[in-house]
Simulated assay, not measured.
Amino acid sequence: MYIETLKKELKERKYRMTPQRELVLKVFMEHDAEHLGADDVYRILFSKKHSVSKATVYRTIDLLVEFGFLRRLEFGEGIYRYELAKKDKLHHHFVCKICGKIYEIKESYLENLKNSLENQGFVFENFDLKIYGICPKCARKSKKNPLRRK
């Protein structure tokens, strides 16, 4: 689905579908549950013996963001992470301050907030809610070792 849509979008904008662009998009499709950085994508492609330069990965990701295929996220780490932009799958993120794992929050009340804003005349483009705290796994560990938590 994404590949064909990207081919169509590229053609409409006078770009061509290169093997590298397809490979980068496929990485995001195969790692849909993760929030990958450009270096992560490069490492995945390198480990699969694909010869794609790091610069090409960065340019392709920027293009995929511009075309609306990827969503750019920033979790306070000093790097951008990306995920497939699913227009019908509004979700937000919980970031564990101990292990760094990123969890997706898919609650309907967030959709209700979006609808409420639109009903008040706001033009909704996008919003990104990030909650920082401690995940259940790290919370259990910190209970076992009270010195771990500050």
Rank of each mutant, 00 (worst) to 15 (best):
H91F: 07
D39F: 15
L70G: 03
E22N: 09
H91C: 05
K87R: 14
A55E: 11
A55I: 11
K48Q: 14
T60V: 04
Y80S: 14
D39W: 12
Y80M: 10
G76Q: 06
R43Y: 09
L90A: 10
F75Q: 08
D32S: 13
K26L: 10
L45H: 01
R59N: 15
F75M: 15
Y82W: 13
L36R: 05
S47E: 13
S51W: 12
V41Q: 00
F28P: 00
F69D: 00
Y82G: 14
Y58Q: 11
D39N: 14
L90Y: 13
D40C: 10
L36F: 01
D32L: 09
K48S: 09
G37N: 03
V52I: 13
R43N: 10
G68L: 03
Y80R: 14
M29D: 09
L73G: 01
Y82A: 13
L70R: 07
G68E: 02
A33Q: 08
V65G: 06
E34T: 01
H50L: 08
I44A: 00
A38P: 02
E30I: 03
A55T: 13
D32W: 08
T56N: 06
H92F: 11
I98L: 14
K101M: 12
E77C: 03
K86M: 14
L63I: 08
K48V: 02
I98V: 13
I61Y: 02
L84C: 06
V95N: 01
A33C: 06
F94L: 04
L23W: 10
F75D: 03
